[in-house]
Amino acid sequence: MKTQFPIFNICNLSQSNQEDIIISRFASYLEKHQNLILSHKHSFYHLVLFTEGAGSHAIDFQSFLVKPYQLYFMVPGQVHSWSFEGKVDGYVVNFSTQFFQSLLLKTDYLEQFPFFSGSGEDSVVDLPDNLQPIVLDLFEKLVYESEALQRLSQDMVRVLLLQLFILIGRLNFENPTHQATAFNYTLVRKYQKLVEKNYTSLKLPKEYAELLFITPSHLNTLCNEMLGLSAGEVIRDRIMLEAKRLLTNLALTISEVADQLNFADNSYFTKFFKKSCRRPRQIN
């Protein structure tokens, strides 16, 4: 029995020692890497478009039904697994965190897109009918550029991917749940990034509000409006996610998990875990 999730980097999966980008049709990709249907992590961004197939896909312990013309966006570190029914096909793009750095001066450019937030609800996008042929054409061009290996092919891949991200990003901001000022959206993203970095040491919204130079009340209002969660729930959900990830490692005791998450003792951690499991989630 495995004691932890395997972690894959692009070199693990590349047939040509490629370090920064892999583009493939999904059926052939899955045939080469059948073990990827089991729970695992990536050290890279992972993008999948399904054109055929059914079943389910679990991202950080949240399950989604697989269906044609559905896009999945995953960020480094997320745990996911597949459970397919019948034949599946589509496209897959894996790219490293460094892939766009040679083209973009703004190193955090991708973080403006909700589907790269690491949130399950934002990570899965059902393409509307009018966008399906456009997105399909972009993926066909990505496959062509990856196979043709012409001069500046990687830059063309970068441009095509950015075109895709902007196109899908517009969908997110047309959605009423994401209609907010650019400033407010930036604040919430900064809060999520701070939580990601400090969730084991800073566990109160007021501590993050101080870092953002806003009041705890304003931070809570922004989170409720944009995420459908209170500021405190954002912190607790991140701690809970890491707890689930750690508890799947059979080599760790509950006390060791509690210690890694900076709980005073394992009884307090156990109470937190049980309470969080019972707490109903609000779905926008």
Rank of each mutant, 00 (worst) to 15 (best):
N94S: 10
T107K: 15
I59P: 01
S96P: 09
T215V: 13
K67P: 07
K2Y: 08
H33C: 07
L246C: 11
L162K: 11
S63I: 03
M226I: 14
N9L: 07
T270N: 05
L131I: 12
K67H: 09
A27C: 10
V92T: 11
N94T: 05
E19G: 01
S230L: 04
G120V: 08
V124A: 07
S255G: 11
S24G: 01
S96N: 08
I10N: 04
S146G: 15
P133G: 09
L65E: 05
T200K: 15
H80E: 11
F183A: 15
T177G: 05
D237F: 05
Q70S: 13
R245S: 05
L261G: 10
L171E: 05
S63E: 14
T215C: 02
E140N: 12
E140L: 13
E225W: 03
Y144D: 13
K32E: 08
P76R: 08
F273C: 00
T186N: 15
N35P: 00
H42Y: 14
L164Y: 09
T200V: 14
I239F: 01
N249M: 13
P114W: 02
R170Q: 12
N249T: 06
I214P: 08
I134L: 14
L49Q: 10
Q4M: 01
D259K: 06
D259Y: 10
Q15R: 11
Y144P: 04
I134S: 06
G86C: 07
I254G: 02
G232H: 06
E174W: 03
F113C: 11
R25G: 03
M1V: 01
S255N: 11
F273H: 02
S39W: 02
I254P: 02
I134H: 01
S201W: 08
Q34P: 10
H40W: 13
I168W: 11
N266A: 10
F213K: 03
I254A: 05
L250I: 06
T51Q: 03
V157I: 15
L13W: 00
S119T: 12
K197D: 14
V143P: 00
E196W: 05
A58D: 04
N35L: 08
V93Y: 04
E196M: 12
L131E: 11
Y45V: 07
L211H: 14
S217P: 00
Q34K: 14
Y199N: 06
I166C: 00
